[in-house]
Design a protein around this nucleic acid. Sequence first.
DNA 1: GATGTGTATCGAAACGATTCGAATGTCGAA
DNA 2: TTCGACATTCGAATCGTTTCGATACACATC
Lengths: 336, 336
Amino acid sequence: MNIKDIAKISGVGISTVSRVLNNSGVVSDATRARVMSVVKQYNYVPNSNARNLKMTQSNTIALMVKGISNPFFANMIKEVERQVHLRGCPLLIQHIEDGVDEIGAAVQLVKEKNLCGVIFMGGTYDHSEEEFKQLTVPFVLTTITTIKEVDPSVFSSVSIDDVHSAYKATNYLISLGHRSICFLARFPLVENTIGNRRLLGYKKALEEHGIPYDPAFVEDCEYAPSFGFAAAKRLMNKNKGATAMFAASDAIAIGVAKAVLSSGLSIPGDMSIVGFDGIEMAEYYHPSLDTISQPGVEMAHVSVETLFDLIAGETANKHIVFESLLVKRGSSRKIN
Amino acid sequence: MNIKDIAKISGVGISTVSRVLNNSGVVSDATRARVMSVVKQYNYVPNSNARNLKMTQSNTIALMVKGISNPFFANMIKEVERQVHLRGCPLLIQHIEDGVDEIGAAVQLVKEKNLCGVIFMGGTYDHSEEEFKQLTVPFVLTTITTIKEVDPSVFSSVSIDDVHSAYKATNYLISLGHRSICFLARFPLVENTIGNRRLLGYKKALEEHGIPYDPAFVEDCEYAPSFGFAAAKRLMNKNKGATAMFAASDAIAIGVAKAVLSSGLSIPGDMSIVGFDGIEMAEYYHPSLDTISQPGVEMAHVSVETLFDLIAGETANKHIVFESLLVKRGSSRKIN
DNA sequence: GATGTGTATCGAAACGATTCGAATGTCGAA
DNA sequence: TTCGACATTCGAATCGTTTCGATACACATC
């Protein structure tokens, strides 16, 4: 069942059916009604492969995401799907494994499927300006850290200020009297990752308060509870005097909390904890975990909006920086 | 840059390029090398819209999923993506909102994009045999409850035995001496949902031990901590004598635990808790939550495997039922 | 009646791939 | 030299759309 069949059955020309289906051009009401009734009767759905081929343009959006199973991203992905779907576009999701060239994969996908836009989510991008320029369709980087110096006019982005956010968290702990504050994040070999950016904020806060930076207080740690647990154990062994831990993700913070509590210590009695992200599970931990909350859903929403603006012809790339929020719930306390 | 260009530059015919790219038919080594070098030089990627159009067949898989942001599903989705990607196929993800006709949406997608397979994940399907039969491509139902009686030869499925799993959990609590056991799950208006199935197991265990079923011990509850929290509060108010709570998801169980702990009660001292799913966060809760663990990642893996077997020509539909596992971690205790 | 102006419609060409029947070239045997 | 057999390669037709230039008709104007 194709457009030709519909045309024949309706007793009209092919182009008329096309115009009816796409609401383009003029069609008399009578003809439109006749065609639509045939379309409905036969449950005709236009073939998008043919359409995309002819238009050299599909309406498919691709989402390239690292850490698809991280609850923080899971919520964002859901919102991206919702917003993209709302605009009548299919969403292709590709999970980016470590070490894969995201931009290259996207470039290939764009050529192959004539995508109309790409959203990149999460991780650290080590790409040059030339590589970004290979993307011939609009794209948005969401919660992504870029390493190389790339002209901001080349890409759009939605993010928070990681340095300042970590600075706020550390500052908060310092203001409560803590001076032995541990920091947990992922530090891949490359520089300037999210972990490194947050480390910068952590260091800056320490420095401003004359607290010497001690690498022994910092642990490399994947963004998951099990890694947070193990890293916190190591930190507690190394640094008997530590009174606070700042984790670069709530998933880590939950592991940290578990390590503290299962050692027989109390939170915030013996150890104060601050996480990062603002996932629901951290709020329902006991005690509820303090955190730097990112407006993930809103960021996802704005990412899609920005992308569709670009698709609609907007030429100026935007860089939207959201405010993170220090949420105090009771996993930190004032000490002497 | 299309196949014709590549052919011209390589000095060969169009079909030769096609045969080189698809490893079909005979091509002399010299020609193959020449064509491949041109392909590489120009970064040529075949247009899949044209390919799919001509073949009336794409290699795209669609995943229709309810509860995309539920951490249990998030892990499964990741595995589905990984497995599908491994087989060189793009993955289209569509989140199913409440009240949407999943099968209808999939049927449309199949017609529109000539998909080669569909995976449905999560939720309760209220579809007749005729509706399933409209799906003209292989598909697999993963962790899905079907309401209507549908001939099993019509679809493939991957699941656990919900009734028996809930029975195991309830039995466990009863074996510890509990007789006032609350149950929390989602009960939509339709019958035979996952919640209802697990309720059946819960009731069966009670009945076998001569414990009368009391509807006051059961609360309707979405699969998220906030709902678990509120429902547990209601249950504790209604039933002062309750000593245990069985939640139909770990997300709920975390909310329940929070409600109990924040009321000043202890787990498992004053209240025993068992969850369902086996998500990492429940393990790192304090105390670690007992749960009925489903092998989600493995189920996702097998779903993709089953789907690709069907795509490869396997004609017999399979129904794979995984064993759930009662994981005892310390959120339940023996009472007199 | 000839002409002009809109309105509604038509259908051929094109998008970029696959594929099959046909064509070309090479080589050994008759 | 001619022929068949085999190994390669070629290109036209096709998939199901969109779109643009062309057409057909009605009606008002001159």
